[in-house]
Computed example of a mutant assay.
Amino acid sequence: MTEETFATLGVAEKQALLERLAITLERNARWAADEGDDGLETVMASVGKALSSVASDLAVNDPELAKDVVTRALALMTTFHALHPDYPVGPAFQS
């Protein structure tokens, strides 16, 4: 997702994306912990928890900060996948 794409989303879609990123960060943090990567686990869990608690506020009141948070969360997930290439990647959304 590009910054321009994120900017075109409505408030509800921005909030949903931020919440999904938070869930993904927390899930990946558990995997990192299981793999003994305590540093990455701590960072990802902290960011995921913080993001889940402010997703609505960011989506409504600070879209520029929300865009920056998305960019940084994606960079964190890229780092995770680079360090843990065996992580089973599946569908982003499951019902």
Rank of each mutant, 00 (worst) to 15 (best):
D34P: 00
S53A: 10
L9D: 05
L58K: 02
L76F: 09
L17H: 04
S53G: 00
S95P: 14
R72E: 15
E41V: 03
L40S: 04
T42V: 10
L58F: 02
E4C: 11
A75Y: 10
S46D: 12
E35S: 09
D38G: 12
G90D: 08
T42R: 10
L76V: 04
G10Y: 03
G39F: 15
V11K: 14
V70W: 02
N61T: 06
A45V: 01
L76C: 08
V69N: 03
A32L: 11
T2Q: 11
T2G: 12
T79V: 15
R20C: 04
G36H: 05
Y87M: 00
V47Q: 02
P85M: 00
E4G: 14
E64H: 03
I23D: 13
T5H: 14
R30C: 06
M44F: 08
M1Y: 06
R27C: 12
E13W: 03
H81E: 07
L58Y: 05
P88K: 09
A45W: 12
S56D: 10
L83R: 13
A22R: 00
A7K: 10
A29E: 11
A92S: 04
L17M: 10
G36C: 01
A66H: 00
L9V: 10
G10R: 08
Q94R: 00
A92P: 01
V43I: 15
T71E: 14
P85D: 11
V69A: 06
G90L: 01
V54A: 06
L76T: 03
S56N: 05
A33G: 12
R27I: 12
L25Q: 01
P85Q: 02
Y87V: 02
T78R: 11
T8P: 01
E41R: 06
P91K: 08
V47I: 07
A73D: 07
L40Y: 01
E19A: 15
T78K: 13
K49S: 14
P91M: 09
G48V: 12
E41S: 15
E64N: 07
E41I: 04
E64A: 06
K49L: 05
D38E: 11
G90Y: 09
D34G: 14
G39E: 07
V70K: 04
D57R: 02
L9S: 04
D34E: 15
W31Q: 06
R20L: 12
T42H: 13
D86L: 05
T8M: 10
A59S: 01
N28D: 15
I23M: 07
T79E: 15
L51I: 04
K14M: 05
T78F: 12
D37T: 01
A22N: 00
N61C: 01
